[in-house]
């Protein structure tokens, strides 16, 4: 074989191998791209949707849930009510650290079962200290333990929320009733909000949530507990699919000691107003200037 022919042959072999390598290496990306729905990729921001477009999306999401999880669910979008501004208070003297609230959150909000996710973390703290450095979330013994007190932490729905500030695409914002929400279909998954939040309130969907069909809560809200897609951030919404319809948050209903007080801070007769006006109130990391709507108080 003469030299030029051999060179050509080498080039052909090289090119074939090269093309094969490209095709093989690119396969997972190509498969991922093929699974994307154009409808979803080109969708408008939540605030730009007309009522008809929103309704269409809700039906599509219901159909997708049926297809993926095999369950009939109802996804609604209840708007913030006029004259309502939500607040939440937690009695540190009453809380016994049983974590029933975290469990109720897990079920109500269709959290991933594999990671046992919840929007609430309960810290076991040392009596006589507010130093979280000396607290732990990993306690595993009968509660309440002597010499300890318990501090559940969840989203504080800050009025000057660092998470809302840092989001580069306005995928998260504060609603009129004070609740900070995420449009799961707009979030790009950069997790800047997770870095910005001082209360460890945000969670990322590191994978598509795994939930057995019979455990799925079918009563869902678009901005709250519908099953989240993979690769986006989520957070506590004070169970807005419940609270905007006059129900109480799941964590409050589950609390056996009545440590939790939730309500409309604009209503002068509400229990939350009474607590805020009469009790000694503590705001976690108040020095950061985030102006939370979540308060801790001490009862006599």
């Amino acid at each position: 074989m003469s030299a030029p022919t051999r060179r050509v042959a080498l080039k052909v072999v090289g090119a074939t191998l090269g093309a094969g390598a490209f095709a093989y290496a690119g396969q997972p990306v190509a498969q991922w791209a093929a699974d994307l729905s154009l409808d979803e990729v080109l969708r408008k921001h939540y605030k730009e949707l007309s009522p008809e477009e929103l309704a269409q999306i809700l039906r599509r999401l219901e159909a997708e849930t049926k297809e993926t999880y095999g369950v009939e669910v109802r996804i609604e979008d209840t708007p913030a009510q006029e004259g309502v501004s939500f607040g939440y208070a937690l009695n540190l003297r009453a809380c016994i650290g049983c974590r029933k609230c975290a469990e109720a959150c897990h079920q109500e909000n269709n959290h991933d079962r594999r990671t046992n996710n919840s929007y609430i973390r309960v810290l076991e703290m040392e009596q006589g200290s507010f130093d979280m450095e000396r607290g732990t979330v990993d306690y595993d013994h009968a509660v309440p333990a002597p010499g300890k007190f318990y501090m559940p932490v969840q989203c504080h729905q800050c009025d000057d929320a660092p998470c809302v500030k840092v989001c580069p695409v306005e995928a998260t914002w504060k609603e009129k009733d004070g609740i900070v929400v995420v449009d799961y279909d707009w979030c790009i998954g950069c997790r800047y909000c997770e870095a910005a939040c001082p209360y460890h309130a945000r969670r990322f969907n590191w994978q598509r949530p795994e939930i057995p069909a019979d455990e799925i809560n079918p009563d869902q809200g678009y901005l709250s507990n519908r099953i989240r897609p993979q690769g986006v951030v989520e957070k506590c919404t004070f169970c807005l699919h419940r609270t905007r319809r006059g129900l109480l948050p799941a964590c409050l209903e589950a609390c056996p000691t009545g440590a939790r007080v939730f309500g409309n801070m604009l209503d002068p007769d509400s229990e939350i107003r009474w607590v805020l006006e009469h009790k000694r109130v503590y705001v976690l990391k108040e020095e950061l200037g985030t102006r939370p709507r979540f308060f801790y108080f001490f009862d006599e």
Partner: peptide, 27 residues
């Protein structure tokens, strides 16, 4: 590669997506 949803990259393009400028340092 750090983005959870690179398919939504256009959300961060000024004029087309919703560019949270000047508030977000990421923009």
């Amino acid at each position: 590669v750090d983005m959870g949803r690179p398919d939504r990259m256009w959300h961060i393009v000024p004029g087309i997506g919703r560019f949270h400028w000047p508030v977000s340092m990421l923009t």
